[in-house]
């Protein structure tokens, strides 16, 4: 019984410490461009930066239909199980990023440009604002706001 209680106290302390740590380390909230998708299905595990997909950039050049109908991208962040093999095989991003329509896969760091630890999601989306998981997890210092 007593051990049970002390366990509970310890758990509470740990939780409190965790919360304090979270508040102390939490970087300034991201203000990513609306619709930027971070895809981190495999990147962190593979030791590369997560992918940032800018919707706005592609939207200037292509209608939604080209990717979401012709190329088969589902309307779900991280829901397409994309990997480099598929891309090199000409699927998903590789349908254009092949050196033909757009630049090719050797420019790793143009896509793999996210802060490590950023979770897969659509940034600035309503659901992100409601649930609030937009901060990159790494304790990397937030860029100084000098604007």
């Amino acid at each position: 019984m007593e051990t049970n209680l002390s366990n509970r106290v310890r758990a509470a302390l740990v939780a409190l410490a965790g919360l304090a740590l979270a508040l102390a380390l939490a970087p300034a909230p991201a203000h990513a461009e609306y619709g930027d998708v971070v895809i981190n299905n495999h990147s962190d595990a593979a030791g590369v930066r997560p992918v940032v997909f800018p919707h706005w950039f592609h939207r200037v050049r292509f209608r939604c239909k080209v990717c979401h109908s012709d190329l088969g991208f589902k309307f779900q962040a991280g829901g397409n199980d994309i990997n480099m093999v598929k891309i090199i095989d000409g699927q998903f991003c590789g349908a254009c990023h092949n050196g033909n329509v757009a630049w090719s896969v050797e420019n790793c760091d143009l896509c793999h440009s996210g802060k490590p630890g950023t979770p897969t999601q659509v940034h600035e989306s309503t659901i992100q604002k409601l649930v609030g998981t937009n901060a990159p997890a790494a304790a990397a210092p937030a860029p100084a706001a000098k604007r």
Partner: peptide, 26 residues
């Protein structure tokens, strides 16, 4: 001041990545 921030300052791109600075600012 926080609208349409350039990639290096938008909080999700890694400023330490060289490619980040090659991307077009919105």
């Amino acid at each position: 001041g926080k609208r349409n921030a350039p990639p290096a300052e938008d909080g999700i791109h890694d400023p330490a990545n060289t490619g980040t600075h090659a991307l077009q600012p919105p």
